[in-house]
Design a protein around this nucleic acid. Structure first.
Lengths: 123, 123
DNA sequence: CTATTATTTAAGTATTTGCTTAAATAATAT
DNA sequence: ATATTATTTAAGCAAATACTTAAATAATAG
């Protein structure tokens, strides 16, 4: 952990560096929270789950496993991470648990869903 | 890899499952590309770098290391990943390499930057 | 109660990730 | 040429991740 001065070039703009440090500091909570959400959505499997929940409103782990052609425990473990992070929630109906997105206006996920494009059918 | 039928409940909606599979298939390229960008932005360090580049236009690895108080090689390795993915680019000026964002209208990063909020100074 | 179904949890493991330190490039200055 | 500076690259390693299979919960049905 060497925190000596690393950059000693003449062009180094001390004011810019202080300003940037302050900017990062001021947005620190937001950066931390958003990076957590992005790291969840940054898994292709989880992005697919979130994308599906956005379209279908709610789905059970069992259906998701069928759709994504993967094992139920694998799906369940992805779901748990997203539930722990508070971006999805569940509703029980008998033995079945239905998961859905926790909606929020200022949610970074909304922008992500908007940028997912559908390929036109080529057949 | 057991791909037998996992969900046998009565309520299972076969049509919904087929429709979802098709949706995923149609957006497959987009989901893959976006999850790659999100997995890069999903690291707090890299999100900070991207956030800084968005504000400052361009920065060198050395400055970034100073701002984020981490080693130059660590920063350089994060930068390489983002450069390999095509979300940042570089310009050389003497010994110094300046990195900047590769801008694009339909970029998922734009939405992310907009959702990063600045905390008001409390002092 | 026992059996079945939906789901979660736990344990094990292979892969990936993110740093570290040291060495290699690249550009400039002397 | 040698020295200095900016940066990258490589090797090593600890921690995190994402599956697997098996076992544990939870709810319903008989």
């Amino acid at each position: 952990m060497s925190l000596e001065i690393t950059c000693t070039r003449n062009e180094a703009d001390k004011k810019q560096i202080s300003r940037c440090k302050e900017t990062i500091e001021n947005s620190s909570d937001s950066l931390n929270a958003i990076s957590k959400v992005l790291s969840l959505a940054g898994s292709e499997v989880r992005l697919k789950i979130l994308f599906l929940l956005n379209i279908e409103n709610e789905l059970c782990p069992c259906d998701i496993a069928d759709i994504l052609e993967m094992s139920v425990p694998a799906v369940s473990q992805h779901i748990r991470k997203m539930k722990d992070a508070g971006i999805i929630t569940s509703r029980r109906e008998g033995q079945t648990l239905y998961y859905s997105l926790v909606k929020s206006e200022h949610n970074v996920l909304n922008g992500i869903f908007n940028s997912i494009s559908t390929k036109k059918k080529t057949a």
